[in-house]
Amino acid sequence: MSRLTVVLSQAPGKHPAKRALEESLVAALLLEPGLEVSVVPNLYDLGPDHTGRLFLESVKGDLVVLSWLYPRAAFWLLDRDGIQGHPGETRLKPPADEEDADDTPTEDRPPAIGPAGTLPDRHIYCLDLRDFNKAEPYVQEVRRIAAECRDRRQAKSAARPAVVQLGLGLMAPEPTQASAFDAQALLAPAGRRWYPVIDYNRCTNCLECLDFCLFGVYGVDSLERILVENQDQCKKGCPACSRVCPQQAIIFPEYKSAAIAGADTGAVGGLKIDLSKLFGGDVADALAMAVSERDRELVNDGREAVGAAVGLPKRQEGKPAGPKDELDKLVDDLDALGL
């Protein structure tokens, strides 16, 4: 029987509640039959040489990724690293938005360019560890996914000409044993990174990000498709290009506002109060924010600020800022209070 690879990506930092959930979840998953469970540091921080990343790249079959990131962010982050597959649909929904999951106005979107190349024949399921604070819902969902993957494989092999007796060719590729990788290296601390992730199911290849970013983060591949070419040239903390993107296709997985961090809709990030307004956060329209964020990074780099003179498409003039997410609304409410 083929086994399903489950990878848990740890939260950065030492948050006791997050660590506790990770540990109880791993403990519960290890007791489940048919799973190959591994733990890596925060997915977003894994550089190309990190053992955790090499392990992920070696997994050929279906994959479940549990992370503290929005599923959309995790999926496209893996895609950029060449860990590609078809998006597996999770039934796991945070308690708040059970029936209204699909209210994104997808018809309004222009056609996106989609992921690069031919996707391998496997599914990648991304689950968000912020949805529940106990292990049980995740374990149940992983069980359901394992059954779904098994059924899909069986249906496929039934459709193929039989070479059954030989027992060759029909087996799902066995997941790579994480034990083939040094356990300590798998969990070696990864330095914090900061870079954009493109959602190619939204990106139309308009190349506005390429024009806007003056730090050489973006490039195009041999097919002239936009690509986050130099991840580590990105300026830590700066999300300016994502504000400029007309399709909201650019994700900064760890940015505090849900819309930029890759939430599908305007989800509120957890059940905690947000004190940003009290601590001096400011709100301006998206384009003005993007321009001032970029200027700040230019000056910090010893270059000249360019304001709105460079890399802004004309057609954005007078364009209202993108739809506000819940956090934006929250901040507006705080404004109204006149703090």
């Binding site: 948050h15 830590k236 109060i273 956060g281 400011d282």
Partner: peptide, 30 residues
């Protein structure tokens, strides 16, 4: 629980977002 600076030491403007904090009761930009 968690404190992170999202800029390296260097020039900052007033009200620039420079970090992030998560606590028992709250999250916030810094």
């Amino acid at each position: 629980y968690f404190l992170e600076w999202r800029v390296d030491p260097g020039l900052v403007t007033a009200k620039q977002e420079i970090g992030y904090i998560e606590t028992q009761k709250a999250t916030s930009g810094l």
